[in-house]
Design a protein around this nucleic acid. Structure first.
Lengths: 334, 334
DNA sequence: TAGGTGATGGAATACGTTTTCCGACAGAGG
DNA sequence: CCTCTGTCGGAAAACGTATTCCATCACCTA
């Protein structure tokens, strides 16, 4: 910047006033001269030096895993939203491992980011969460801001999905389209999101008139393979009049779908099938999956809004899912 | 750090020597005292202040789009590799728009990153590339290091895929398994990767003994929809003895597959079909796609290795694809 | 015309760290 | 016992920017 000021024939202070986000006004003539010199010299103010004075203008995103499509969509939306305000985004992944989460947060604190956005399916459900919480609190005490995406029982700003509510609506839909014997492929019992969805499915089915005795719940790994295995078990055990299978997410549903195809079970002819998440794969299978779409990009943008927001009370934002009816469900006679 | 030094009863300089990556040795007793004080006070050295002296220890990743699975895999691998060396990673997306690329690079230069990794399918094929090049050169002149992933005709370090070579091997495989009339669904003529693959397919088919007159090339949009459309056209025009369809990527192949299913063409019964990229979807369709797997994670890690490498001559790394034979191709009688 | 007032450029300082230089101290060798 | 040498702690400078404080200047009003 020294060079720019010299080239423009003004003092360092004037150059800074022009190039920094104008704390004070500068005469138009000088302003123009400085801008021209900066352009000519390809000058950009050093973010590190700038960070040493005021706020840092960088955001730290800590996510489980970028390769999961839903994470990628959220992180991408966050990057977009942050960028539109001129903030930089640094990304770290933890693979959901609480130890790595802790280590990552500790590491990232060195950047003195304006805010820390923690996106994880399993923040609270662990023994380490005490130390994690403590670390996040320390970060807040230093003036940082914590936003958690996907979990709402922590005392930080958060963006959560109304898993239970959306699942309830899906359950109601399944009940109202005439299904009477339903199997829920619920994924892992311990994970928060699948558990909330399962509870919502049950709510909705009951509300729609399905008898408790006619709702069966089976667990499996939260993956395509888990669904495949669960589906094979269902086929092997006999479907016993089951006319709908409700899966905790699309990946599981796709696995079940494959098992049904192997076993000669027609979807939706013999059994209706639903997923959750509306991943891209949901429209690339045959039949296309009836599912619940989560507004992931919106949630990501909302997280950045919270991260950059004015200081204030801790805010919990809940975003709703949307039922997407496609070809994997059909109306039953009765 | 002042507080830490005070708490440990040593000078600022000593604390720095212990906590910074030891430029000099400190008496074990003092060292321990400082470490204990830092732990107690939850102290982490300010990265910005640190960056103002030596090198910044941060890497800038500029990618087209995080939501594309292949990009996500590469970026994720880069993050992992960078992290293992203690570097921070900031990501920016440009949606492949050259204007945004330029603006992003300009913006990111403020961070004085140690290196800039540009991952894009279409860096060179544009009128703006002159200004882009100029900007990157200016960045290099300031001591930065530029690594380009996916394009090799720029004068920077690069990691490229041997599209043509891998396509050639796939072409040979198709020829050697007895296919004699082949249609290449080549995607867009203007894009570098599809064009290189098409050339490779032709090489391989010719080498495997397929006559030039028996290779037909059709173009389409590089997407599932493009493939669907192209596939429908093929079905409508009549396949005229075509016994293999070779697509420029998996997405196109999946589109073609759907068109064939609609049109009653059996894969691989009537026609063999191949893709390229080995995206997750390739194993989630029926039949599972024969394709070429690109070692994306390896390429990402390699890019970081170049980015962090010792100064030296510009290096171009070419990574090979691997033929993955699945169910969408079958051996022909002759 | 003189004094007051508002605008604005310039010098200096602070931010938190690393590193260089200097000085002190201890141990060893003559 | 003195001196030389090696080790290590402490003071200070430097990195690049934003901002505070001061000085100057022009303009307006009485």
């Amino acid at each position: 910047m020294h060079d720019v000021a010299a080239a423009a024939g003004v003092s360092l202070a004037t150059a800074s006033r022009v190039l920094g986000a104008g704390s004070r006004t500068v005469a138009p003539e000088y302003r123009e001269r400085v801008l021209a010199a900066a352009e000519r010299l390809r000058y950009t103010a050093d973010a590190a030096a700038r960070a040493m004075r005021g706020t840092s203008g960088s955001l730290a995103l800590v996510a489980d895993d970028l390769t999961t499509p839903s994470m990628a969509i959220m992180v991408s939306a966050m990057e977009l939203a942050a960028r539109s305000t001129g903030a930089f985004v640094t990304v770290s992944t933890t693979h959901g491992d609480p130890g790595r989460q802790l280590e990552t947060i500790r590491h990232v604190r060195a950047l003195r980011p304006r805010a820390l956005v923690l996106t994880s399916g399993r923040v609270a459900a662990d023994a380490l969460s005490g130390r994690l919480l403590e670390e996040l609190r320390a970060y807040e005490r230093d003036g940082g801001r914590v936003v958690v995406v996907g979990d709402t029982d922590l005392p930080f700003h958060s963006v959560g999905f109304d898993n239970r509510g959306a699942a309830r609506r899906l359950g109601e839909f399944v009940a109202e389209t005439g299904h009477r014997r339903v199997t829920i492929v619920a994924g892992a019992r311990e994970q928060a999101a699948p558990a909330a969805r399962t509870a919502g499915f049950v709510d909705g089915l009951r509300a729609g008139g399905v008898a408790e005795a006619d709702v069966r719940i089976v667990h499996c790994a939260v993956s395509r393979e888990g669904g495949l295995e669960a589906g094979r078990r269902l086929v092997a055990d006999g479907l016993e009049g089951t006319d709908a299978v409700v899966a905790a997410n699309d990946l599981i549903a796709v696995g079940v779908l494959r098992a049904f195809r192997e076993g000669g079970v027609a979807v939706p002819g013999d059994v209706s099938l639903t997923g959750f998440d509306d991943i891209r794969l949901a429209v690339n299978v045959t039949p296309r999956l009836t599912t619940v779409a989560l507004p992931l990009a919106y949630a990501g943008a909302e997280a950045i809004r919270l991260a950059l927001g004015e200081p204030g009370a801790v805010t919990h934002v809940i975003v709703e899912g949307r039922l997407v009816v496609r070809d994997s469900t059909s109306e039953r006679a009765g």
